[in-house]
Design a binder for these strands. Structure first.
Length: 582
RNA sequence: GCGUCUGUAGCUCAGCUGGAUAGAGCAAUUGCCUUCUAAGCAAUGGGUCGAGCGUUCGAAUCGCUCCAGGCGUACCA
């Protein structure tokens, strides 16, 4: 990376000065927090390193310190100048041209890197109950999680994506009973969910089970008839069990289909039920018991998590003999650790944040580094319809992820879900996301790609016999016809300035990717995409690509192609389409 | 009460491992299509960075105290 390159220039200059004792009381450069940055004001240079923080060791004014260090740097492919405490670098056309050829050479892998060092990461996200349709919040986790997984894989992490199915416990029976009623209703039996609010809580009264009931009658007509015929006001235990399982699997498969459609692919769906059935929950409790962190009180079994940073102890086994949700979850995380993952990365809704200390406590007690558990807390999503915030409360009718995607489309939904930092409550404005105008960043970015593709099409269609990039005709452009130096001798200052900015932005993709992976912040990719698209549109405005001069035209065509490659790479990371025409 | 996230331009948000004049998009005003997609570009206006105190040569950024909002504070999942 160029940023790193210039930082290293400064560091090695410092080291050599230190060796010769020319820098006062300083030791090696790595002991100081030096950073390279891109100056906000381009007149200073293309890159800069601020060394004023070293002044307290050199006992010299910042400018003097910077000058001494700068004079120690051998400049070859760049210019150097000092302002205040900054050492500024201006790169030359040779380095700029190299950016283009490197992109063309590495293509979609241009920014691929290995900062993850192959760390075995299990990323768990969405993890919903199979008891209903996804709501829009699930959509945010799905979009963010899948994008993060892509970004981290691209950065050398070994990422395994898992969805934990909360398919154990009473809610599944509740689901079965509700389907039972919906089936009877299909047969026109006069029965409805309890009107009493308290009793209605034992059912899923949403209408999402109506189509499931219809499917059931179609697929299992015989059994459906038996259910209707044997109805006597009480649930038939055998049929209820069957329906519970049927509904559970049906809902799960609907969820899985939706996720794939939403460009979210899991390596595994891990069933909580199998966790119980395999005896892993029991085994985990036994282990905790042996470790001496469990005790009995008030007829329940407790985990002494408060000794490990939690604010109070937690119930593991309720006085009615059932396990809590936490118990299975501890066993699940134990299982993840035993499968050899060294980083347990979870995306949880902000409403679960109080849950972190107890899970950390469990990881620690089980003999692992509590820092191997890393939870990304996602703030919630509010829907904005016609400018008004619709809070997803119990009273309002839930808008499902399905509805949202139907309304807005997969790409726009994903983009809007990823666009904001996970720390901020997301206001999802349906009208804005739907709009195909300039207030919608998705289209801005996709339009840049379509526009670039169009140039390549036009170039191949009328002007030359070199051509299109692979997705068009399979041919490759002929690099030998391009004269990149012509980019910098046009006499058109604005054209050269915007071209330079564009090329530097291409190079910045590397930093964007690494920061996104390191900080678990996929929104940095959408931010980068918007910046790249903007720089491309500016380039387009000031540099006509298809021109008489063949050497210049080819050089610009290659710039365009490089832009297309980076746009595609970044859009692939966040899993949205890169349309060739719009 | 305690924990946690947030408070930056009219709106939505970046910037927050301290550093050059606080940025972007939208909205507003004004220009630019006989020339590669105007879903675009150029220009202009717009800010006591919630408030106060402190640390520092230097604070939107770090610390403390307030203020406002979201979420949580179960033998629910």
């Amino acid at each position: 990376m160029l940023r790193e390159f210039f930082l290293n220039e400064v560091k090695s200059a410092v080291n050599s000065l230190v060796k010769n004792k020319k820098l006062g009381q300083m030791s090696e450069a790595d002991n100081y927090n030096l950073q390279s940055e891109i100056p906000k004001n381009a007149q200073f240079g293309d890159f800069a390193v601020n060394v004023s923080s070293l002044s307290r060791y050199t006992k010299l004014p910042p400018v003097k310190t910077a000058e001494i260090i700068a004079s120690e740097i051998n400049k070859s492919d760049f210019e150097i100048n000092v302002t205040a405490g900054f050492i500024n670098f201006k790169i030359n056309s040779f380095m700029l041209n190299k950016i283009v050829t490197e992109v063309l050479d590495k293509k979609l892998d241009y920014a691929k890197n290995d900062i993850g060092k192959g760390e075995k990461v299990i990323l768990e996200y969405v993890s919903a109950n199979p008891t209903g349709p996804f709501h829009i919040g699930h959509g945010r986790w799905a979009a963010m999680g899948s994008a993060l997984a892509n970004v981290m894989k691209y950065s050398g992490y070994n990422v395994y994506q898992e969805f934990y199915i909360n398919d154990a416990g009473s809610q599944i029976q509740k689901l079965g009973k509700s389907l039972y009623i919906r089936i009877l209703q299909e047969f026109e039996v006069k029965i409805d969910f309890p009107s009493d609010e308290e009793e209605a809580k034992n059912f899923y009264t949403g209408d999402f089970l109506i189509p499931v009931a219809k499917e059931f009658i179609k697929e299992e007509n015989k059994r459906a008839k038996i259910i209707e015929e044997t109805w006597n006001g009480n649930y038939n235990e055998e049929q209820l069990k069957y329906l519970s399982k049927y509904a559970r699997l049906k809902m799960l498969s609907k969820q899985q289909k939706l996720l794939e459609n939403f460009h979210t692919h899991f390596d595994n769906f891990y069933s909580e039920l199998t966790l119980h059935e395999s005896g892993k929950v029991e085994a985990c409790i036994k282990k905790l018991s042996e470790l001496g962190v469990l005790y009995e009180q008030d007829g329940a079994v407790w985990f002494a998590s408060s000794k490990y940073g939690d604010e109070k102890d937690r119930v593991i086994k309720k006085s009615d003999g059932a396990y809590t949700y936490l118990t299975a979850d501890i066993a699940y995380h134990y299982d993840k650790l035993q499968r050899g993952f060294t980083k347990l990365l979870n995306i949880w809704g902000a409403d679960h944040h109080g849950y972190i200390p107890r899970m950390r406590a469990a990881v620690e007690v089980l003999g692992y580094n509590p820092d191997s558990l890393e939870v990304l807390l996602g703030q919630l999503v509010n829907l904005v319809i016609n400018g008004e915030e619709v809070r997803m409360g119990k009273r309002t009718k839930m808008v499902t992820l399905d509805d949202l995607i139907d309304e807005v489309g997969v790409d726009a939904t994903r983009y809007w879900m990823i666009m904001k930092s996970i720390d901020t409550t997301l206001d999802f404005d349906i009208e804005l996301a739907k709009s195909k105008t300039d207030d919608n960043p998705v289209f801005y970015v996709q339009y840049a790609h379509a526009r670039a593709c169009s140039i390549l099409r036009n170039a191949s269609a009328d002007k030359l016999d070199i051509v299109n990039n692979k997705m068009q005709s399979g041919n490759e452009l002929d690099l030998s016809k391009a004269d990149f130096n012509l980019l910098w001798t046009t006499g058109d200052e604005k054209a050269e300035e915007t071209t330079k900015k564009l090329l530097l932005k291409l190079e910045e993709y590397k930093s964007a990717v690494q920061n996104a992976a390191k900080n678990r912040s996929p929104y940095l990719i959408t931010k980068y995409l918007q910046e790249l698209a903007a720089d491309f549109h500016k380039f387009y405005t000031f540099s006509k690509v298809i021109v008489e001069n063949e050497g210049l035209m080819c050089a610009r065509l290659f710039v365009v192609k490089a832009v297309i490659l980076i746009l595609q790479s970044a859009m692939k990371l966040i899993a949205i389409e890169a349309p060739e025409k719009m």
